[in-house]
Design a protein around this nucleic acid. Structure first.
Lengths: 353, 353
DNA sequence: TTGTATGCGTTATCAA
DNA sequence: TTGATAACGCATACAA
């Protein structure tokens, strides 16, 4: 390969010397027309600018022949559009977010966007830093999973007119479009199911944070408990602080076991997986000694024995709608105020309760 | 913070109204110096260009005061460096790649790079398209997981002098740096372990492709079988074509069960998970009726009952080394020929065999 | 329907 | 040690 003198590949270095990148100017020269004409055609605005069919054709053809590739950087500098979206999740290695990321990737590419990602680890500081990096890199829009204490950060971005859609979680008081599942309904449904199955003493474990999704799960839980006239002995909410939550979880589970709850309701994917790890280690018999139900689906819940009943979020819908919203904001097609979507998920009944 | 009027955050809106983006020209005017001086200081080349301490300080200070943010697009257009890396994995929603992506994200950010990702779904066509999008977007480098039939595509990119590091898989004949685990050793180790446990008839399931990792796993398997003088009845390699592999897997597993193999060796994470799903559905007793061992670790393998013995890859090392290589190539610090790293992983012994 | 001129914000070259 | 000026490649308002 390195020997063939005539191949355009192998000559790259040599060719590069004489032959810099092909630009619209080169094409214009070749055709003896103006660069602007070429630009209009090649940027897809030929029709809009009423360029003649013939001229258009000539341009596109020689562009192809000369091996023209638009310099997106130059275009971006000029137009302010990079064609890149920024995605901030809590942790891309968490299957929940990885799945979400994949769906978002698919949708984004349908609209011609690439996506940069980064993980916040649920830390506001990282969240802030990442977002600012994205903004500095001039992403056209941001898809964010808010974290604890991130409201002001997001608000600040919003005030700079960065197109943002919040996914999975949201801040009601921010006028930022959001796409979430109906966590209230989900909790409610799950509790009703537990009651129907005859469970009498329910332990609900959730993160101690004001983030919408966790809060709504808790509210759904409490509302349903209230609606079903459960006494305060029949249910309890256990809250985990973010730092060192694994240790706390261990302690809470010990407590739950000694206090004779008959079912644990994990308020999140990660809590469910980690909780299950602990329960398995303790060799707790599920569902005989203890029922288990968890938010979010996961391969783990399917492979654990017994398989774990859970509530699956409609991730595909979330991703789809998020991109509809975001592209609309970017294209100035919607007022971003009060735009939101809430989708219902589904209970997947298995053997754990 | 939100109350302090002097904070740069709260004043942002007010500033934004009257004030378009602050550029080095604005700063230059303010200080009555030339834009080039400002540029030199702000781009960190002050020392190199022997700008006086005093001038440097004045520039940085007023830049901060005026709320200057460099326009990375303009810089990128000028320098040709975007500060973005492109990552092509087979599927970001696959926990194996999601974990890898997270580790790469961490490393990349240490070097000041952002990362765009996309999934090839093991399809050469998508792989090609994605990579070209990345290149068009002028990423500074590419981290790729090659797929079947992707050699020429990669070679073409390489010939265009795109910095590339291949991870997890590689093409020997391409002079492209790669970072992989020692798949040969892994297979070898696993088989030796199986033999030691007394297994006599081993079914090895792997994808039918020439991609390095799968090929080496197969070679390791065969070499070890040979080394241990296994007869041809004592082992067999089953190969799956990519399209519709799930159905094929089902058929192969049926065959394995009827032909009385006493252990299945899954040559990949996904095969292991899907295979296990099938075995569980058939209510096969593991390890009594059939032993199971798989490549790659996974939560599923930990939660399945019995837990699945597997071989874990040293993902962190892969990610670290990949970024060392890639940044070196980008900075022209190494000759990219014949640079590679192979790391050994570890066997995780559990109850499935 | 086409062409001209200018700017996007930086950096790099050269001269002072 | 600093400044003037020319690119980087493209898109657009305006003129023809």
């Amino acid at each position: 390969m390195a020997l063939s003198r005539s191949s355009s590949f192998t000559n790259d270095k040599i060719v590069n010397k004489s032959n810099k990148r092909i630009t619209i100017v080169d094409i214009a020269k070749e055709l003896a027309v103006s660069p602007s004409l070429v630009s209009m055609v090649l940027s897809g605005n030929g029709k809009k600018n009423r360029i003649s069919e013939k001229a258009s054709k000539r341009v596109t053809e020689t562009a192809k022949r000369m091996g023209y590739n638009p310099n997106l950087l130059a275009r971006a500098l000029r137009t302010g559009k990079t064609g890149v979206l920024g995605l901030i999740v809590a942790d891309i290695s968490n299957p929940f977010f990885a799945t979400l990321a994949r769906l978002i990737e698919n949708e984004a590419s349908r609209y011609g966007y690439g996506v940069m990602f980064a993980s916040s680890d649920e830390e506001a500081e990282k969240f802030n830093k990442i977002g600012n990096v994205f903004i500095t890199k001039q992403v056209d829009g941001l898809i964010i999973v808010p974290v604890k204490e991130s409201m002001e950060i997001i608000s600040e971005w919003h005030s700079r007119n960065i197109p943002i859609v919040s996914i999975d979680r949201y801040y009601e008081s921010l006028n930022i479009p959001y796409v979430v599942s109906d966590n209230f309904d989900a909790s409610y449904t799950m509790i009703k199911y537990l009651r129907k199955k005859g469970h009498n003493k329910i332990a609900f474990i959730v993160r101690n944070t004001n983030i919408s999704n966790f809060k709504e799960r808790e509210c759904g839980f409490l509302a349903c408990a209230n609606h079903l006239s459960l006494s305060s002995e029949q249910f309890h909410v256990f809250k985990l602080d973010n730092d060192n939550w694994k240790k706390e979880l261990q302690i809470i589970i010990d407590k739950i076991l000694t206090e004779g709850f008959d079912v644990i309701f994990f308020g999140q994917n990660m809590l469910g997986v980690e909780g299950l790890r602990i329960l398995n280690k303790l060799k707790i018999q599920i569902p005989d000694n203890l029922g288990v139900i968890s938010f979010d689906n996961s391969d783990v819940f399917e492979f654990n024995k017994p398989r774990i009943t859970c509530f699956e979020q409609p991730l595909k819908k979330l991703a789809e709608t998020t991109l509809v919203y975001l592209t609309n904001i970017i294209d100035d097609k919607i007022d971003d105020k009060q735009t939101y979507a809430k989708f219902k998920g589904r209970l997947i009944i298995r053997e754990s309760c």
